[in-house]
Design a binder for these strands. Structure first.
Length: 695
DNA sequence: GCGATCAGGT
DNA sequence: CACACCTGATCGC
């Protein structure tokens, strides 16, 4: 839960995700997403009075967040004070430009990037981004480089090594899908209840199940989705469906005698056969033994892996790509302390990594303005010593060197996926759903249990060599990988500081962990793809059998993932879409999933083709600002998240990798020889042509 | 009566 | 384990 106080040190005149106390005096408000713990004070009468007496003070959020917020009558009074597009020139004196970035947490969730005279500040809100996704966000980049970010206010919910790995969305979806499929295909009276916490964030799961299984998901209310067709299409208030996500104040009691929260117990006179699936976070320590995403917890109850927040390794990947000067945790992880979190995060920040003496001085005025009761972080330390004047730019060559493109393997080992799909078996003739789920309670434990764990582990797991896993996980990210990769060619041995700009950019922007060799990133079909709108939750199930494919290369996914000609056409069409809309259009239909897990890709659909995308944007320049909104001259450029949706386009133009963009190059670790060859080519300025793999 | 806060539950 | 959220008790205005 967020304990962010509402204000960032650099721009104390704006309040984000907190609306009480000192925040009542803010000159602008920002809401990252529509979860209650980020809305504290948002309906308080004090703030309401202030808003009603002011024409200037506004609340800025994504269009989807606005829609969800205003669905609740308690927040209706905000209606005329919400700007669902991002303004620049917020204030006359302080010139702050704000950019929305997809956060992948729930529909409408965004991160806010503030750029102004006190430096660039990224507030992540809550987020879940897979490895490498930051590298694919065009809006985090300036030209071809990641922006020079002073401070990151970070979602540290799972910032603890014990949450090292959380199965990807795709894996989780797949597991849930297969379980639901197996059960609901028995008879029409076999129904599933998804025991979801009352919160936005499961929509892409519903959509996926509905699409794959051809049955809509029952919910209590749909009005919040009334302008979100791609969700609305897959949910229903008709109780006669086999998938339920409805709720009841005491829904746990409903399950005696197969009663659903919505009240039904039978269909056509036949009693229902009910299973309960409870989405909940499962995590695995660094030395992964198994990644079952489904655990049977009782006769007819299951727990399914599901996380709205990035795992520790995902946080590390994100932060080490951003490399801010400062980082401030928004959340205290379970059982963790501020100091502990900072110990983990600081090594990922720039000053630490570069051994640069922090020669910056606090800004006295800000210091005075900063109230002590904003108890979000250890201000004594951070604020005084680290609030810095704009630091000198670091040459990109330096920054890039810690990220050699292809040395990494991710920990998302093929064995895990394989195991997760194999770990349960069902026999359609057996209505008790004989499932051979493996209990994975202990796999959530820390590393110290590993030995014991592996003894108890009877399932077949393609476990990795622990050492290899642990040392290779952050290769290419931390810059500390020399030992473990001594035999892998390093980019900088081929290319020195005087290398041409273009090639250096390639390195700089390589996804830090998705750098699966040249082929996927250099996939030649990426031209213009980054312009298109779309999302992708829908296809995740068609996706990538990470373990079954020989490679995680994008190209090979394109071959195996179900993208039909029709879909390709749709994809092509979608490229032509305009980026610019008028302010007044924000009332119609939204693309909630643009902000949902998949959205990162919609902003950079070519994320998977990162390099090509980067080069392209470099050529055109226009892409650099694409998601930034400017208000004041009547025309507003909007980020992708407010585009008018096109259901079919969206669905079709997605590839499965949108959930978890190719973050498992480990399926086929880059061969040193191949790398060497690639580097040589790049260094020589030769173009790299992507070859399709025949897997 | 309302809202904030906390404890306790799912 | 966790999250996000609800309910109910208590307190202050």
């Amino acid at each position: 839960m967020s304990r962010f106080g509402g204000r960032v040190r650099e721009y104390p005149a704006v309040s984000i995700d907190r609306f009480d106390r000192d925040n009542l005096r803010a000159r602008a408000y920002f809401l990252s997403h529509c979860h209650k713990d980020h809305m504290k004070g948002l309906r308080a009468s004090a703030l309401r009075r202030r808003m009603e007496g002011s024409l200037k003070v506004k609340l800025y959020c994504s269009p989807v967040t606005k829609e969800l917020l205003l669905t609740n009558w308690k927040y209706k009074f905000w209606e005329n004070h919400i700007v669902s597009l991002m303004p620049t020139h917020l204030f006359q004196k302080e010139d702050i430009e704000v950019t929305l970035l997809p956060a992948g947490h729930c529909p409408g969730s965004v991160m806010f990037l503030f750029e102004g005279e006190n430096g660039t500040v990224l507030y992540t809100g809550d987020f879940r981004l897979a490895k490498g996704e930051a590298a694919r966000m065009e809006l985090l980049h300036s030209g071809t480089r990641v922006k020079d970010i002073q401070s990151v206010y970070l979602d540290t919910t799972f910032c603890d090594p014990k949450f090292y790995h959380i199965p990807s969305r795709e894996e989780c979806l797949k597991g849930i899908l297969e379980l639901v499929r197996s059960w609901t295909s028995l008879t029409r009276n076999h129904v599933v209840w998804l025991n979801c916490k009352a919160a936005y964030g499961y929509e892409y799961l519903f959509i996926n199940l509905s699409e794959e299984l051809g049955m809509k998901v029952h919910m209590n209310k749909l009005d919040m989705f009334r302008n979100m067709p791609e969700i609305l299409y897959h949910v229903t208030t008709d109780r006669h469906t086999q998938i339920h996500a409805c709720r009841h104040p005491r829904d746990d009691e409903c399950f005696r005698w197969n009663r659903l929260p919505c009240g039904i117990t039978c269909q056509n006179g036949t009693p229902l056969h009910l299973i309960i699936i409870k989405p909940s976070t499962m995590w695995f320590g660094e030395r992964i033994k198994k990644t079952n995403v489904i655990v049977r917890t009782g006769e007819s109850t299951y727990r399914a892996c599901f996380s709205f927040h990035s795992s520790y390794s995902e946080i590390k990947d994100f932060l080490s790509y951003i490399q801010p000067v400062n980082v401030y945790p928004n959340v205290l992880p379970v059982g963790g302390t501020e100091e502990k979190v900072m110990e983990l995060l600081k090594p990922l920040c720039r000053s630490y990594r570069r051994n640069v003496e922090p020669r910056y001085k606090p800004l006295g005025t800000l210091k005075r303005a900063h109230k002590r009761d904003l108890s979000d972080t250890d201000e004594d330390d951070l604020f005084d010593s680290e609030l810095t004047s704009p630091r000198p730019k670091i040459p990109k060559q330096q920054r890039g060197e810690s990220r050699p493109p292809s040395t990494a393997r991710t920990e998302n080992a093929e064995g895990n996926n394989h195991e997760s799909t194999e770990s349960y078996k069902m026999t359609a003739t057996d209505t008790s759903l004989r499932v051979d789920f493996m209990d994975c309670e202990e796999s959530n434990d820390d590393d110290e249990d590993d030995e014991e764990e592996s003894e108890n582990n009877t399932a077949e797991v393609l476990s990795q060599e622990p050492d290899a896993t642990s040392t290779s996980n952050f290769n290419g990210v931390t810059g500390d990988q020399q030992e473990s990769n001594a035999d892998v060619p390093r980019w900088d041995t081929f290319f020195k500081c005087d290398r041409p700009e273009e090639t250096s950019d390639i390195e700089d922007n390589f996804p830090s962990s998705a750098d699966a060799g040249g082929s996927q990133s250099l996939f030649s079909d990426s031209d213009g793809v980054s312009d298109s709108t779309h999302i992708s939750s829908q296809n995740s199930s068609q996706s990538t059998h990470i373990s079954e494919q020989g490679s995680q290369g994008w190209d090979s996914q394109m071959d195996t993932v179900l993208i039909t000609t029709q879909e390709r056409n749709a994809l092509d069409n979608s490229r032509g879409g305009s980026r610019t809309v008028a302010v007044s259009q924000d009332t119609t239909k939204y693309s909630p999933l643009d902000n949902s897990p998949c959205q990162p890709l919609s902003q950079n659909r070519s994320c998977a083709h990162n390099v090509a995308c980067v080069l392209k944007s470099r050529d055109t320049e226009k892409d650099a600002d694409a998601g930034t909104t400017r208000v004041g001259d009547g025309v507003v450029e909007v980020s992708d998240n407010s585009r008018t949706p096109d259901l079919e386009l969206r669905r079709d133009s997605q590839s499965s990798s949108d959930f978890e963009i190719p973050l498992t190059p480990d399926a086929e670790a880059p061969q040193p020889e191949k790398l060497r060859c690639l580097y040589k080519k790049l260094a020589a300025g030769e173009s790299i042509v992507c070859e399709k793999r025949d897997s």
